[in-house]
Design a protein around this nucleic acid. Sequence first.
RNA 1: GGUCCCGUAGCUCAGUUGGAUAGAGCAACUGCCUUCUAAGCAGUAGGUCUUUGGUUCGAAUCCAAACGGGAUCACCA
Length: 633
Amino acid sequence: MEQHIRQALLAAAPDLFGAPIHESLIQFQQTRRDMEGDLTLVVFPFVKILRCSPQEAGAKLKHWIETHIESVSHCNVVSGFLNIVFTNTYWLEQLNQMQDQPNYGFAPADSKPTVMVEYASPNTNKPLHLGHLRNIFLGASVAEILRAVGHKVVRTQVINDRGIHICKSMLAWEKFSPVNARGERETPANTGLKGDKLVGKYYVEFDRALQIEAKAIMAQWQSGNFSDTPTAIEEAVLNFEKAKEGKDDKAVAALDDKIKELAKNQTQILQEAKQMLVKWEARDPQVYLLWTTMNGWVYAGFDQTYAQMGVSFDKLYYESDTFLLGKDQVMEGIKSDVFYQKPDGSVWIDLTAEGLDEKLVLRSDGTAVYMTQDIGTAIDRFKDFPDLHGMVYTVGNEQDYHFKVLFLILQKLGYAWANNCFHLSYGMVDLPSGKMKSREGTVVDADDLMAEVIEKAKEMTQERGHLEGLDNTAREQLFTQIGLGGLKYYLLKVDPKKRMLFNPEESIDLTGNTGPFLQYAHARISTLLEKAAYSITPLSLTTPMRPEEKEIIKQLAQFGATLEEAAKGYSPALLANYSYELVKLYNTFYQSVKIVIEPDAAVRQFRLALSAKVRQVLAQALGLLGVEAPQRM
RNA sequence: GGUCCCGUAGCUCAGUUGGAUAGAGCAACUGCCUUCUAAGCAGUAGGUCUUUGGUUCGAAUCCAAACGGGAUCACCA
């Protein structure tokens, strides 16, 4: 409709304004809720052309639109704003058209190019936590949204399955795991622990042992005993100690941290872990077997968590396969002068012209760094999926700089698709007690949290839900839907790039702007339609319409545009807010009129049709957020 | 210190091509179930949009600076 009026105005411009006008002068906006009108045209831009007051310009436009646009009932001008009111017939036609589209708002499948969406990307040394939940819900939702606007989507994750952190867990397990009567160390099978939890436990064990050892070394240093310490380290420690004199508390703490780092590096246990990594890289059979076994435990645990979360992947990449990639590209890049080599053999890229720093892309010993690997992996993915058009990396905003550099490098290497790569950067999740820190044990475990919200949903639903006639399986399923729906909605309704506060108590709230609020509306409409034995019929275009009803049709009409915006901005939050608005409008309507028990048949059918469409759009929107829409609750 | 992100009601957040009197939810208070699910609805109260300057008919929104919070600046990943 907006487009229609715009075109008509452009075509009529010579008559109306005496000259053609530029499209940008025609500015539409939503009419304020407290004004009469369905669409508002800003009059001010026309004032200069017409050389008259805003009142006169408004009157002229009002007259022209009222006489030339058929769907317009009437207009009114208020202080430079032309509020246009469409006819009821127009809105009923809109609703009729929506009724005919079961996938209303969605674009045809595979009408847009293939996009790869990466999310989750965990380390295999510890369980998933709250931060992963935001990442995974966000990535999974964006993947669904991109699919809904027509993209073919490949969902993927990179599993960070190698490196010193894994060796720490492995070593601690070998050193500290108790041996049972049958001579076995702890396994998921003989302890009943989830694999990722068991491995995570030994990662913590490692850190504990490391801290004890490091403290002992620092105590020695304090007492002036450097007999076990290389002279270079001894000098460094003494220098830091000297630098502390006369500094404020903050600077002293920073120096103490540096000394502690040195002490940790001197510990026996860290040396052993490093040796283990060397052995792993040399494919030592024993170390490799241990690595395979323990990672296997972790994957089994992760699979369980992903299943509970309701997310999945189309293609997995393992860092142990990809960490050597990218070296060839770097060598190629030296030839084409994208990179340069320093005398020690290390390879760099100079990005100072772009306002960034110099960045290392290959170590002097020829081994790959994180960046090397990401360059290689990106190129590899475009080989794996020849029709791939772009990629979305769901990674926390602490990596903003890394991805800026990565995309720039890919561009300089001459890959046109580098422009279609996007870092879906999201803010950290804080707790009321502050930042999550694994060292301080303030990490919120993903499994525990999900179990907790489901349990809470169970209590609340048993208290006030409508469960009669549901068997136990159906009930458990409903509690899960409500608990996880609430959690997902809570994490997704906030603009991804903003740092957010996670309040465990609010995440399982049921009232206000929450998942269960939306789910409740869906369930309520479902039973309503069931009671009315509703089926779709074309609506009479003369059905009387209340303002609340028109507001709902207007909001429904915005669905497609909102979905497009959400896809363009990679923001599920837009859909969350849209759904919330829709439900609020619907609830107002629901409380003010009769629906099933409405005596007038045409009005009844119209209200049912409206309800049915709200339910369907709501289910679609919630689905894109990964939130399930129960039939009753 | 350089670079990037953020700052809106007591709290959590909306506010997307600059536009009318800046909106929700939570918390507080008042009403509404003998009519379809009250996990709901209607209402009261709560604001220097961090500050200052600039751009313009018009700024929460754009620009600059300051202040506050965070991230990042490794031959770690």
